[in-house]
Design a protein around this nucleic acid. Structure first.
Length: 519
RNA sequence: GGCCCCAUCGUCUAGAGGCCUAGGACACAGCCCUUUCAAGGCUGGGACCGGAGUUCGAAUCUCCGUGGGGUCACCA
């Protein structure tokens, strides 16, 4: 089994595309086949490397490896027995295939002018009939067409045999049967451009490539379903066997297409989050691809690729009636086109976030630390090479944070108050906690008690606080919040006694003193 | 408009004529636990688009509506 994914180089990797690629990849992996990555850049744009890199980087991050395709450095080189894997570098093959069809009388040049075509289309519209284009030299003999084409290149069209039907069994949609009378003579090669080059049209390039690459299964978005009969006709003309097709439903957002237009701009929370990650306003604005439809967004904000993969695969496919958390090896062992759903699905950020949390619970603290490091560096909370002391402190923060760290970037919120020397107060929380003047006095007295804790660890400070509260006849919680705010500036965070222990006696008491002076 | 695809809780889905008083998950609400925030436990509300037909029996099959989507390019 050989499957493929063929993105056009747009400069970012869209998660809808990733899902399509994932289905192909899973199929190949399950059946011990190959997954091929091909870049559909038939317009041969100049900045190809820039536009391809995000796609390649995205797949690399996701761990979706390809057996043949562009080299990982995005240089425009390819690896694999059918190289190159860039359509922009393959026009010779398309031309050769087209010339063969021309010589065999299966294709012909079309000298219809755009004006003639527009008029014919209009007439059909008026008659409320579908317009099915057939070109001028359709019934001209092959040799004559070759002669005319050589003398005056023009769009080359495939001659569709009338009165036939194209039948195929879609692996997702089931049996299809289309009359050739409704299929226009499709273009194979465009007319010559300014430099005289006749570039292949997408449909034809795809067929030539998929046939050359021995692709056996083409899983793609349902919007291509109506292209399929045309492509099958091309396969037949080329004397090739069409692959098995599987057309999968779309991924929508709130019932609409997941295009940039319909997507919400980054929320204030998200922008704030990126800023705490060390991004500047300009950097955020400069990243056109920073939205929930791209892989880059999830990588930058600290998602786990396995969570994204699990989520995307479950969107439009199910293993059974209840499995939601499905690790990759299970996905590979069970994925099949039969269980792809018929209806389009809606992207649900909350469910992805939940899965992310589930996957995060599985990451051991030491590994979590390693993967948090880049975020801490970017936020300038640590040096490029943090000392062992800092690493040890961070590990304690991560252990104390537990499941609270859902995204790797969340580490910043927990580590920053303990790493920075200055306390950044949440004004509202501080005001509320010290509204009652008695709170300040209690805090002052408790700071003295803390000074006697030995050793200064979570259990000793815990006991000290509870004993102190009991002696004073107050609820422990009446003291916990003021202390928390005094040492971290924030009303929320992981366990207070862990916080104190990580800070140490000196720093804890010093921070309380600073706060006392400030309120 | 022609042709094609689709239709189960807010969302993702299970459902192949009786297992359906329609199951699970996310989200939501309430309660419990608790040191705030998470996590965890328990409980709850919540759906077969409408109408005909076939059948002893329909979420499931057929038809008609309705609603959504796709496609009709020298875009990919």
């Amino acid at each position: 089994m050989r499957t493929r994914f063929a993105p056009s180089p747009t400069g970012y990797l869209h998660i809808g595309g990733v899902r399509t690629a994932l289905f192909n990849w899973l199929l190949a992996r399950r059946h011990g086949g190959q997954f091929i990555l091909r870049i559909d850049d038939t317009d041969d744009s100049r900045n190809r490397a820039d536009a391809v890199k995000p796609i390649i980087d995205g797949f690399a991050w996701l761990g979706m490896t390809w057996d043949e395709g562009p080299t990982p450095d995005a240089s425009g080189e390819s690896t694999g027995p059918h190289a190159p894997y860039f359509q922009g570098q393959r026009n010779d093959q398309y031309e050769a295939a087209a010339m063969r069809l021309l010589a065999e009388g299966k294709a012909y040049p079309d000298y219809t002018t755009p004006e003639q075509q527009a008029a014919a289309r209009k007439q059909a519209d008026l008659a409320r009939k579908p317009y099915v284009h057939r070109g001028t030299n359709r019934d001209t003999a092959a040799e004559e067409n070759v002669r005319q084409y050589t003398a005056a290149p023009a769009p080359l069209l495939l001659k569709v045999e009338l009165g036939q039907s194209v039948k195929f069994d879609d692996a997702v949609k089931g049996k299809q049967d289309i009359s050739t009378d409704t299929i226009r003579d499709p273009m194979l090669l465009r007319g010559p451009d300014a430099s005289g080059l006749c570039r292949a049209v997408y449909n034809f390039a795809t067929v030539v490539d998929d046939s050359d690459f021995d692709i056996t299964h083409v899983v793609r978005a349902i919007e291509h379903l109506s292209n399929t009969p045309t492509q099958i006709l091309m396969y037949q003309a080329l004397g090739a066997t069409p692959p098995t097709f599987g057309h999968i439903p779309l991924v929508n957002y709130n019932g609409n297409k997941m295009s940039k237009r319909n997507l919400p701009p980054l929320s204030n929370d998200e922008i704030a989050k990126f800023k705490t990650c060390g991004w500047t306003d300009d950097e955020i604005k400069g990243r056109e691809d920073l939205n929930i439809a791209t892989v880059a967004y999830y990588r930058e904000i600290g998602y786990l690729p396995e969570a994204l993969i699990n989520y995307l695969c479950r969107l439009g496919w199910s293993m059974d009636g209840e499995s939601e958390f499905i690790p990759l090896d299970t996905l590979i062992a069970n994925f099949s086109l039969e269980r792809v759903t018929d209806a389009p699905g809606n992207y649900d950020a909350k469910k992805l976030f939940w899965l992310q949390g589930e996957y995060m619970k599985l990451i051991p603290p030491a590994e979590k630390l390693e993967r948090c490091l880049p975020f801490l560096r970017r936020a300038k909370l640590i040096d490029d090479a943090p000392s062992d002391d800092v690493r040890a402190k961070l590990l304690r923060v991560i252990e104390a944070s537990g499941d609270r760290i859902k995204l790797f970037s969340d580490v910043l919120a927990f580590a920053a108050p303990l790493l920075k020397d200055e306390i950044e107060y949440d004004p509202k929380a501080r005001e509320k906690a010290f509204k009652d003047p008695a709170a300040k006095e209690l805090l002052r007295e408790f700071a003295e008690v803390l000074g006697t804790c030995e050793p200064f660890d979570a259990s000793s400070t815990d006991k000290a606080l509870h004993d102190f509260a009991a002696a004073k006849g107050i609820k422990p919680n009446a003291l916990v919040t003021p202390v928390r705010i005094a040492v971290t500036g924030s009303g929320v965070g992981f366990g207070l006694f862990d916080t104190l222990a990580i800070l140490g006696k000196e720093a804890s008491r010093k921070r309380i003193a600073v706060t006392l002076a400030a309120v």
